[in-house]
Design a binder for these strands. Structure first.
Lengths: 210, 210
DNA sequence: GTCTATAGAAGGATAGAC
DNA sequence: GTCTATCCTTCTATAGAC
């Protein structure tokens, strides 16, 4: 339950990488309780003894893998789109591009699966909740807030608390569609629904802060 | 896995009610995988044989209990506040009262625990996702939408798609605080934070739809 | 209906050979 | 490091007595 959390390295043994990959797929898809160490060993093509030679417990393996999944930047990659030259002065276009990228990412099956696992196990594994929060909302605020301030200084947006505005933008994006998808309810979101949700979110945001 | 789902009745045997109560507390607090039938029997003060006499499988017991928890109206009780006479003509006050009631309810430890369990298990138990969605967002739309239409007809709100507006109001309420609480991250939300979140949500909503 | 006792399977973790 | 084989615990579910 307490040991060193080694991140993944290219120098890691092939077996270790096999274990990490197999366990990640299983844990992310099925959660902690539904996956056995037997199943992981089988999927990784190693014996259970080898598995335990690399990870001293199931808890440690789980925390390592899901923590790493959270740190693989849920949102960071999309924030750079705010720096796109053509969009700097067109607030609505910038928000729409950002919103589309973010919502598509949030609705990917892998993102949803990580969300389900983290929400389910964050009580027993508090470090997972912290990692998810830090790499999701917190990171978004850190990048989006300054951009909002910049736009406000340029007179293209009303001055407001940037953290609140950032949270509300995410909240608007996650309205409606997201919960349905997180619960796995059919029908799966269509690209048209995603676009409509983003448009509605940007409309509301611009009316409030434009 | 498939059997008749009997709801709770006053005519039910005391043992059955003991089982339902004990199992509900355990499942809601710890989820499906972490709770054993042994633990439920112990907490209910009955033997495992008695437990199985009432519920033919762990799956059935789990689905019965969580489904019932979803149908115990997560939101319905608060929608009546919209009919409060004094608030009919004061849109901002009505939204603030509604928002406070809803957000406080959503942040209760029991509501959060149900959310965690449903999100975690809705893939394996699709009926739970449906029950949660139907008794949460869908029911809210059904009550909030007509109220919005009414306000629009009275000229106190701008005409807009009531479903979208209802979803966005929930989205604004759940921005920031809610995810942190769902992940169990300290510090626990204070009443001041709740009030500030509601005020900010109503502000944004009124700027967009007022 | 309710209990004690237990079957039968699967779980996490380890010993010892190579 | 890696394997096979196995230990011990815990799990779901049931048989049989009252």
């Amino acid at each position: 339950m307490s040991a060193t959390l080694k991140p993944r390295h290219e120098t890691d043994s092939p077996k270790r990488l096999q274990i990490l990959d197999a366990a990640a797929n299983l844990f992310i898809a099925q959660g902690y309780g539904a996956v056995s160490m037997d199943a992981i060993a089988r999927a990784a093509g190693v014996s259970k003894a080898t598995l335990y030679a690399h990870f001293t417990s199931k808890d440690l393996l789980f925390a390592t893998i899901i923590g790493e999944a959270c740190r693989e930047n849920l949102m960071g990659q999309w924030l750079t789109s705010l720096e796109d030259g053509a969009l700097v002065t067109d607030v609505r276009a910038a928000l729409t591009a950002l919103g589309l990228g973010l919502l598509r990412l949030l609705l990917e099956e892998r993102s949803l699966a990580i969300y389900r696992v983290v929400v389910a196990e964050s009580v027993r594994f508090p470090e997972l909740g912290r990692a998810f929060h830090e790499n999701g909302p917190v990171q978004f605020r850190r990048a989006f807030g300054p951009w909002l301030d910049e736009q406000a200084k340029a007179g293209r947006l009303r001055a407001a608390d940037p953290d609140v505005a950032a949270d509300q933008f995410i909240g608007l994006l996650r309205s409606g569609l997201y919960l349905r998808a997180a619960l796995g309810l059919p029908p799966a979101p269509t690209e048209a629904e995603i676009a409509a949700t983003v448009t509605a979110a940007v409309d509301t945001f611009m009316r409030a802060f434009g």
